[in-house]
């Protein structure tokens, strides 16, 4: 009985040791991938929030766009190459909105601006635990990456 327990213990230690070696080997990769996933998830949340709040009819600045069904069709992460010590990525946010917005470019630009800004604000929060002091931000830097965002609009 006692020898059985010892064998299990050695197997367990070997298994844990092998797992530890594997985890340590891929740890930097996991950290970087985790950062990308976290940023993409936060950007989706932020874009959805921006679309929701503008869809209800909240105005941004002086532009009072009418309420409507504003949707986020997709948020795609595009690699732009290196910028300094960081890898640059861009969120391409595809927004769907009713065609009646298309007649007024200030409505469209204001909604695009809100959604892009909210996406980056949420990314900033995800990595810093607080929202940025500035109400408008254009770039978020993390340990490995630098993120900005752009928007495309589709009408329905």
């Amino acid at each position: 009985m006692s020898s059985n327990r010892a064998q299990v213990s050695i197997e367990f230690i070997i298994l844990v040791g092998a797992l530890l070696v594997m985890v340590i080997a891929v740890f930097p990769y996991i950290l970087k991938t985790n950062e990308l996933n976290k940023a993409l998830s936060a950007a989706r949340d932020g874009a959805t929030f921006g679309a929701g709040i503008r869809g209800v009819g909240y105005q941004s600045g002086s532009v009072e766009a009418p309420p409507g069904r504003i949707k986020i069709k997709s948020v795609i992460l595009e690699r732009l190459g290196r910028c300094g010590n960081l890898e640059c990525y861009r969120f391409r946010i595809v927004i769907m909105m009713p065609s009646y917005y298309s007649s007024n470019s200030s409505y469209v630009n204001s909604i695009r601006s809100t959604i892009r800004n909210q996406a980056l604000r949420f990314v900033y929060y995800a990595f810093n635990g607080e929202y940025p002091a500035s109400s408008v931000i254009y770039r978020v830097n993390t340990n490995y990456y630098s993120f900005n965002a752009t928007t495309d609009v589709e009408y329905y």
């Binding site: 985790n34 976290k38 929030f49 929701g52 209800v56 949420f122 929060y125």
Partner: peptide, 21 residues
């Protein structure tokens, strides 16, 4: 720890949208 910020973010998002409505 890696998920706590995202969860708080989502909680705030849901509350903000609901109360906005």
């Amino acid at each position: 720890v890696s998920l706590v910020n995202i969860n708080f973010e989502r909680l705030n998002l849901a509350r903000e949208l609901g109360e906005g409505g």
